[in-house]
Design a protein around this nucleic acid. Structure first.
Lengths: 237, 237
DNA sequence: ACGTGTCGGATCGTTGAACGACGTGTGGTG
DNA sequence: CACCACACGTCGTTCAACGATCCGACACGT
């Protein structure tokens, strides 16, 4: 058969249109990404004020675009804006932690138990990958890496549901919890105990024991919440 | 005992600090609310373009504040923005409907089954209220009212989880589905059959039969998705 | 000395205008 | 009929400016 250029071109166009190009334009979005990274990396600690003039000059953007980036991060609950006082890095309290974990205890076990991709090899592989990522980070004593891996693990769990919108919601919740972690202190001995539990959950999912896996996840989350709340109330300034 | 003014004042202060003041300011937010209402009410149909100059003049706000409102609604998936072409009312496709219902099939049954408020009288009362609201709207042949009540019903179901963040996420999903409804046509015979199913779910929840209620909700959602998809693919222009 | 009222500085919220960049449609040409 | 160039409209971004509001400091009266 002849290579039909027309048809080939159409196929290429279709492929491109489906694989949305990064579209990383929109300076406001890039500014938001940069700020979010600064926050989750811990370089901008909870409670600090983000003055508009200072950040405008520091990031070489106009005040309006900075405000647009701020608005996005406020919607993500990473920043909070107080009228006529400025925007601040959010400081999640015990109320917020409770609320987030109530949400996670609903979503994560259900995604494991009833997710449409809960028996999909590729989706399960991502769970296993996150576990491995955590183990190697721990072996290298890279505790920030362990925290990252833990986040990837829970995101992989939710992705078993196969819903983009649920994945995005979980990203927001996880980013918010990173803020709470910064308040409880360094993550050295906090994330370590969960390496084994992650492994156990992954193994159950791989074996198709979804009900047991879901129960383990629920127990896991209840325990994690209790520990965070304890750290938050015990180490209050 | 004497009325201790000091202690009374302290109690009042504590009460005030918990009851956050409304803080309904921010014109951009009001503009976003107005636009969102126009969209979900069906006065702005999916696909129409929202030119900035026209809406600036119509709503008597500056272009920057309008853009801020647009950004918020884009984040809520009610509008979509195409670079250098403008913002449009979102037109959810079958892919979006699938994604939303995958999310709902995870969240809603789990909220009924494992929600912390699933045996809370006040929370259950809100479910029953939504059912009654739908019945009286149907009796008055107010089908838009029936659609509203249906939305309230599912929101009440999710609120059994007791998580503010989950409630907000569900509000976004429900608003997005209203857009899809506008594409399938008038809601007369679409929402009517679900009045009985809503009633059945509410009854099961009231009886504490949470497992049965969750299963019914899951089946309910699968059926609803199938009908929407059928309408969307069958009545394609 | 303590609480109260007033004042000034600083910042935010909002506006209007401006310039460059990009997509779209039109019209001419082979 | 297909293809290319050009002009037009719109968005993305920036800037300067004006009120509105909040915070801190100071002076005053009790």
């Amino acid at each position: 058969m002849t290579a039909d250029p027309d048809r080939a071109a159409q196929a290429a166009l279709a492929a491109l249109s489906s694989t949305r190009v990064a579209q990383t334009s929109s300076t406001a979005e890039r500014v938001a990404d940069a700020l979010r990274e600064q926050v989750v990396e811990g370089r901008l600690l909870p409670g600090v004020r983000l003055g508009e003039p200072a950040f405008c000059e520091a990031m070489r953007v106009s005040r309006n675009t900075l405000r647009e980036a701020f608005s996005q991060l406020v919607a993500e609950r990473i920043l909070v804006r107080e009228a006529h006082r400025g925007v601040f890095v959010a400081t999640p309290g015990v109320t917020d932690v409770h609320d987030v974990y109530r949400s996670r205890r609903i979503v994560e076990p259900a995604a494991v138990r009833h997710g449409e991709r809960a028996r999909d090899e590729a989706a399960i592989a991502r769970v296993r990958d996150a576990v491995d990522e955590g183990r190697s980070a721990a072996a290298a004593e890279d505790w920030a890496g362990v925290a990252d891996a833990n986040q990837h693990f829970h995101r992989a769990l939710v992705s078993l549901a196969g819903s983009t919108r649920l994945d995005q919601q979980m990203d927001l919740l996880l980013a918010e919890m990173r803020l709470a972690f910064h308040r409880v202190g360094t993550h050295r001995d906090f994330h370590e105990p969960y390496l084994e539990r992650n492994d156990a959950v992954a193994a159950l999912v791989e074996q198709g024991e979804l009900e047991k896996a879901a129960l383990e996840v629920a127990d896991y989350l209840a325990d994690a919440e209790a520990r965070i709340v304890a750290s938050l109330t015990g180490a209050g300034p």
